[in-house]
Amino acid sequence: MSPDVPLLNDYKQDFFLKRLPQTILGGPRLRLGYWAPPYIYVNQIILFLMPWVLGGLGTLLYQLSVLEDYLTAALSGGLMLVAALVVQFTSVKAKTKSVTVERMLTTDVLAEEDEHEFTSCAGAETVRFLIPGKKYVANAVFHSVLAGLLCGLGTWYLLPRRLTLLYGCAGGTAPLFIFGWMTLCIGEYSLIVNTPMETATFQTQDTYEITPLMRPLYIFFFVSVDLAHRLQLSLSQVTVQV
């Protein structure tokens, strides 16, 4: 290849800059490649941070010694379950509305997405763009329940007191708390809001919507290892006392 030939031309650079943050963050489209109202991006940020807000409420009550750790997990998980069901219901409601969505077809084959025109912050076309929804009602319910379970276990795992006992200092607790919640937000967003675009070949094979489950399953794996370790320690302490 000639040194004067760029690795990514202008079209590919635009495509790469759109897909990279979407893949890393689990679905939010923070760069569309065309003009969109600010509320499109604000709504995505709100939906992305929603698990952190709900989990943060439970964490605050735990830190204030109002709730026990298991009640904190149940509260955060229950709130996330309700929020996920509301999101899915909103998506279904938007699909049933007979609103004409104006689209401007793109001429760039690498875009793989049509350009949309939005008329209002809470309009049906906006909701359908932000929350495409599930193909099957069973998946909508199952993914919502999974989202609640994930938020509850994640909140339990990321309680600051527990993290401090694990590392023994605030220097290790703060980064793990921040990046841990970022990871949970990524998993929750791809599960109940929108999933990053995959290749066209894989999209046709994902009939049962397996892709949204991948990130949450990775999180469940790491959390389950921690819970198993804590259970082992608890059983060891009980054995010693006996």
Rank of each mutant, 00 (worst) to 15 (best):
2 S>P: 06
3 P>M: 02
6 P>K: 05
6 P>R: 08
7 L>G: 00
15 F>K: 15
24 I>L: 05
28 P>N: 03
30 L>D: 00
38 P>C: 11
41 Y>T: 04
52 W>R: 05
52 W>Q: 06
55 G>F: 08
57 L>D: 01
69 D>L: 10
72 T>Q: 02
74 A>C: 07
75 L>S: 01
82 V>D: 02
83 A>C: 09
83 A>F: 12
85 L>H: 01
88 Q>C: 07
89 F>S: 06
93 K>A: 05
95 K>T: 03
100 T>W: 10
101 V>G: 09
102 E>P: 13
110 L>S: 09
119 T>I: 13
122 A>C: 08
123 G>L: 00
123 G>E: 00
137 V>M: 04
143 H>C: 04
144 S>T: 12
148 G>T: 11
148 G>N: 05
152 G>F: 04
153 L>W: 07
157 Y>I: 09
165 L>A: 15
165 L>M: 14
166 L>A: 09
171 G>F: 06
174 A>C: 08
174 A>S: 07
179 F>G: 04
185 C>K: 01
187 G>D: 00
190 S>Q: 05
192 I>A: 10
193 V>P: 01
195 T>P: 05
200 A>S: 12
201 T>D: 07
203 Q>S: 12
212 P>E: 00
215 R>T: 11
215 R>V: 14
219 I>K: 00
219 I>H: 00
226 D>S: 14
235 L>H: 14
